[in-house]
Write a protein that binds this DNA or RNA. Structure first.
Ligand code: SF4
Ligand code: SF4
Lengths: 157, 157
DNA sequence: TTTAAAGAGTACTAAAAAAGTACTATATAA
DNA sequence: TTATATAGTACTTTTTTAGTACTCTTTAAA
């Protein structure tokens, strides 16, 4: 499916929770409670995030936990997605992908996915977790798109 | 991973092959040969496509095969993707998704993915298999975007 | 009318990926 | 010193995806 992994989704939820309380360390239990995700899963995800990202500090011991070092509007959701899942590559034959497609020798579409992959990447790139938390489509579009092109295409409910 | 299923990818390759020879019926063996995909897999995919799409005709018997009823520029790649995989839903809590997220009762992000999901859907919607086959980024962008916004964001190689 | 060729339908198997669990080690503040 | 919290690792289960096999039906040509 063309869907975010559950773990990646959860990672974003966890980071959003941290971004709301940047003044202190939040521990896994607190995140688990607030997110409605099991403690074990939160622990697993947080460990991963810390080891792979550069915008989070962890502190052990009592009154320890996690704290962000960047603000919500400075963290693009593509950072989290690529951190958890590796590079966004819609197919195997896209630039930057490590795996190789077994049909690439015959396939006349080889490499042609790069354009659309780039467009999707740029979309994700321009979307911060602050945008995600605010959930207001109008503010995002006016901020990021000078024209009304994309705006009109959206079927606002 | 944020990647197209192999079967969906293959489906698009097969349809592209058909679109190059719209004057006659092409059988599974010929597609298999041209695509470099095993015959059994091509057969499976073609059966699926026929049963789910409205732009392909199948003919049994000798000199049978498959033929498109629409031109390449009239078939959006999102048609094929959603036909093979179901609706494009970046998370479970996006409108139009059938499954339910187990955290949706607690999660304060519930519903907030709709915007970005819509933008991705629109991107895929506006991309036809003719665009994919041509592989020329400039022609696509000038055709579909009146402004130079997205154009400038792309890192053209 | 017969026959070979090709798709339709269905069920099954194998492989890969994702999600969830458990346990030990290490660091920290009280 | 102790309780608490993260770090690291390995394992198991579940789910999804990919691949295979076989029978049935349709069709055009011999
Ligand atoms: S080379 Fe062809 S079959 Fe392989 S990933 Fe690219 S488009 Fe798909
Ligand atoms: S409700 Fe929250 S956890 Fe569930 S799919 Fe939506 S964002 Fe993800």
């Amino acid at each position: 499916m063309f869907k975010l992994n559950k773990m990646t989704d959860y990672a974003i939820v966890c980071i959003c929770i941290l971004s709301k309380k940047m003044d202190r360390f939040i521990n896994a239990q607190e995140i688990s409670h607030e997110a409605g995700i099991s403690l074990a899963t939160v622990q697993k995800i947080m460990k991963l995030i810390v080891s792979k990202s550069d915008f989070i500090t962890a502190l052990r011991g009592s009154s320890g936990g996690y704290k962000l070092t960047k603000k919500a509007n400075e963290i693009s959701i593509i950072n989290i997605i690529e951190m958890m899942d590796g590079p966004v590559c819609i197919t195997d034959c896209v630039d930057g992908n490590h795996e190789r497609c077994s049909s690439s020798e015959n396939c006349f579409l080889e490499g042609n996915w790069n354009n659309i992959n780039m467009i999707i990447r740029n979309t994700l790139q321009s979307y911060s977790i602050a945008d995600l938390m605010c959930s207001d489509p109008i503010s995002y579009l006016y901020k990021n798109h000078s024209n009304e092109d994309e705006f009109n295409k959206m079927e606002l409910s």
